[in-house]
């Protein structure tokens, strides 16, 4: 993959990969120098830091910072327990997850399809590129009020916002993939006598899979963010609605608890896509 990623998700992914490589390298070569380079020592230090942060948060709340602003870990935990034990959270989670999932699938499919159409016709790409760039440059969240007017405050407007966001991500990843494909592959197939359809099927589609999957992986985060933003701006259910209504009641515990659930959903879904990626792209390691 390119070393200069276009979007922040990819930048983060590269950084994390480099970080883990660096960690394993230093772990191997300097293990004698510090106990914190030993896996056990490092894990202990990590747990200690997280605990220290939680303790500082817990006891600083109400003393160092006003409690109403920062809440506290115990209050957030209590809020989560209350949401789950009353069962009120499930409807909200279902709303956000289904908006994100449906929009993600629609947007990704349309993005890949458009990317292939544009990528296979140089002429079409040249003609349409300024239009695509203009739409791509627009902060997608600005479309949210339009979707609310056209589709109402229900899940449809959130699905549309998610789909548009994921659409452009996958469109660009597909185009990048097609541009970066080794030209030699297609030439070799052509010399063997392959027709255009066989080249698309045997070379292009499998060749851009790494790019599509990297788009899909990053897209999970985009999808959840877009769904929640849609709910923050207008809605009557979903995690974003919970966050917004908590903020309206000056209830910071509710904001943190909502964001926490969102992070869990997003991390779990990203992990699912990563597993699928490893399975499909098993030839890569």
């Amino acid at each position: 993959m390119s070393a200069q990623p276009r979007d922040p998700g990819a930048a983060a992914a590269v950084a994390v990969a480099v970080m883990s490589a660096a960690a394993s390298r230093t772990g191997a070569s300097e293990s004698a120098r510090s106990v914190f380079l030993h896996p056990v020592g490092r894990a202990a230090a990590q747990i200690a830091i997280v605990l220290a942060m939680l303790v500082l948060w817990q006891f600083g709340s109400g003393t160092l910072f006003p409690r109403v602003w920062v809440s506290s870990p115990s209050a957030i935990f209590a809020r989560l327990v209350q949401w789950f034990s009353s069962g009120s959270i499930w409807g909200h989670m279902a709303a956000t997850v289904s908006a994100a999932a449906i929009g993600y699938v629609l947007g990704a499919a349309a993005g890949v399809a458009t990317g292939l159409l544009l990528g296979l016709s140089r002429k079409a790409e040249q003609i349409l590129s300024p239009f695509v760039i203009a739409l791509y440059s627009l902060p997608k969240v600005a479309l949210a009020p339009f979707f609310v007017i056209f589709l109402g405050i229900g899940i449809e407007s959130k699905i549309a916002l998610v789909a548009v966001t994921v659409y452009f991500l996958l469109l660009y990843n597909t185009l990048d993939g097609l541009r970066d494909l080794d030209r030699g592959w297609a030439d070799a197939y052509r010399l063997m006598g392959a027709n255009d359809r066989e080249i698309v099927r045997n070379v292009m589609l499998p060749g851009i899979m790494p790019w599509i999957f990297s788009g899909l992986r990053i897209g999970v985060r985009y999808a959840f963010t877009a769904a929640v933003l849609g709910e923050l701006l207008a809605g009557n259910q979903g995690i974003g609605y919970l966050i917004e209504s908590s903020a309206g009641q000056f209830n910071s515990s509710g904001i943190f608890a909502g964001v926490f659930i969102l992070v869990v959903c997003s991390v779990v879904a990203t992990e699912v896509i990563s597993r699928a990626e490893k399975f499909v792209l098993h030839w890569r390691n």
Binding site: V16, M19, A23, Q46, T225, A247, I255, F256, V259
Partner: peptide
């Protein structure tokens, strides 16, 4: 490298928060 090894997963965890959804908190 020592600090990086320790803080890596913590920072990655913080980064996985969709930051723009914190907007209501900042407001």
């Amino acid at each position: 490298p020592v600090a990086a090894g320790i803080l890596r997963p913590i920072i990655f965890g913080l980064y996985s928060i969709p930051l723009v959804t914190l907007a209501p908190l900042f407001i």
